[in-house]
């Protein structure tokens, strides 16, 4: 399991440009939003936490279809199925690798982008925290979607159609935590909901993803 994770990270560093890609995407889209919405900082700061969450979600979504497709094409996935370790742990390793290359860096970079969008001062901590807690769920759900669309022709588009409704709860609770944090009101309930959701998803969904992989590799 650790081996799969380390190898995937090494691969991401060498080929995928590692987490640079996700951060670049995050930055560029934030700039586009500012250009689109206009320079009025008051308006921008109101919507900044929500916008940042949506951009982070899209960044996760974009890099999902690479999770399995490379290994599927060159046959590594078949060997992994036969390997002694359970498929669930392979799926979890893949999701963690995806999280480390997209979710986490986004969380760390988000204050910088928040600054650009005029996020209120007390919002930074909660933005980073909500992203750090929410993105694991995004990665695991995304891995489930990647497994579903394995080997399909235009899988990328189908992946986002399948995954977006599944992202709704995480987005709502995550953005809510960030928004309440930025205006400084009490945010216990959305925080606990986000935590519960993330843990539940990370604990249970890999089993569904592994089952889907076995069906797809049949």
């Amino acid at each position: 399991m650790r081996a799969v994770l380390l190898r995937d990270l090494r691969l991401a560093m060498r080929v995928g440009g590692g987490f640079g890609l996700a951060i670049m995407f995050f930055l560029i889209v934030a700039v586009l939003v500012a250009l689109g919405v206009g320079p009025d900082v008051a308006l921008l700061s109101d919507i900044s936490s929500g916008i940042l969450w949506v951009i982070a979600l899209l960044a996760c979504l974009l890099s999902l279809d690479r999770i399995f497709s490379l290994d599927y094409e060159d046959g590594t996935l078949d060997h992994l199925v036969i390997a002694p370790l359970p498929l669930e742990s392979v799926v979890l390793a893949k999701a963690t690798a995806h999280w480390l290359t997209t979710g986490l860096p986004l969380g760390l970079v988000s204050p910088l982008v928040g600054l650009m969008l005029g996020l209120p001062a007390e919002g930074y901590l909660w933005l980073v925290l909500s992203l750090a807690l929410g993105t694991p769920a995004l990665s695991v759900i995304g891995t489930f979607g990647a497994a579903l669309t394995l080997g399909l022709k235009r899988g990328g588009l189908l992946l986002s159609v399948l995954i977006l409704p599944l992202y709704v709860p995480t987005l709502i609770f995550g953005a809510e935590v960030a928004r309440r944090g930025s205006i400084g009101i009490e945010l216990q309930t959305p925080l606990w909901m986000l935590l519960g959701l993330s843990f539940g998803v990370v604990a249970i969904l890999p089993f569904a993803s592994a089952a889907v992989l076995r069906i797809n590799l049949r």
Partner: peptide
Amino acid sequence: EDSFAYTAHADGVKPSL
């Protein structure tokens, strides 16, 4: 259990490693 080692047409080799 777990007694098979399988080699397919595809080599399963990572070019960037």
